[in-house]
Nucleic acid binder design. Sequence first.
DNA 1: AATACGGGGAT
DNA 2: ATCCCAGTATT
Length: 309
Amino acid sequence: MPDLPTKTLTTVQDALLAWFKEESRALPWRTTRDPYAIMVSEVMLQQTQVDRVIPVYLAFLKQFPTFHNLADAPAADVIRAWAGMGYNRRAMNLQRAAAQVTELYEGVLPSDLKALRGLPGVGEYTAAALACFALGQEVAVIDTNVCRVLGRVFYGPEGAPEKELANVAAQALPDGEAWSWNQALMDLGATVCTSRRPTCLLCPVRSDCQAAGAFLATNGAVAESRGPYKTKPEKFEGSSRYYRGRVVDHLRGLAVGESCDLPTLGTVVKPDYISGDQPWLLDLLQGLQRDGLIAMRGEGSIVTVTLPL
DNA sequence: AATACGGGGAT
DNA sequence: ATCCCAGTATT
């Protein structure tokens, strides 16, 4: 962190915590202490916005109330319950993590950061989030919001150098307030200090922010200087991701035990599908199978596909 | 360090 | 049309 007067840091901490007390979003995973529920929310929130998670999260917990329930459920049910979320691999990772918790840790989420990090689908961010939000530990979490907010406040419009972030986040953490502080940073990032169009006029820390002046001067517009993406985002329709999603979505719609043959599946997901596309389809399916998202039976031309048992 | 992985909402 | 999102795993 750049040389920052302790007084400034304290001011920022107090202002943001006070703001959070008044303006925090009411989110379902903030009113539970159940580590399992918190974990479900954290995995769902990986690259998926709050508004889209809430209804799926509530239904998911109703259907799979505990680690044990999730671990024992048919994978097909879990994949169906994940509908609308995207990144379907997360559903399988979450179920494998649940199995690991029941088998290795007697159904209790481990409190050790390293053990958490060893669960499938739990990376650096989620391990810290679980430690703080599910287990009450005083650790800083670093997600895209925290990264942006801290970067702007303490460095400026361009944000913080990548390698300094962990250090900054750790130093900024107020004693005994990790839960509120982390939640507050994410709320501010999601609602005020947004990526495209920060509304500094509504920000509780604008008077101590290294970026607010520049943003206010340009009427809230973020400078182009952050530059366009290095690599062009591939277009979604027609991509492998697109067809993977369509395959899984079609299989979700089948009755339990019902399977789908290759020509039918190909035609459903790709309107202009021809028999010559079968190698392409098989390749696509192989990837899905490797991710545990589908099951294939049979040989050669009589292959059928279903959600996994 | 790059790339794959979903899909809907915001601009 | 492009960017963005409470990231992770693989290459």
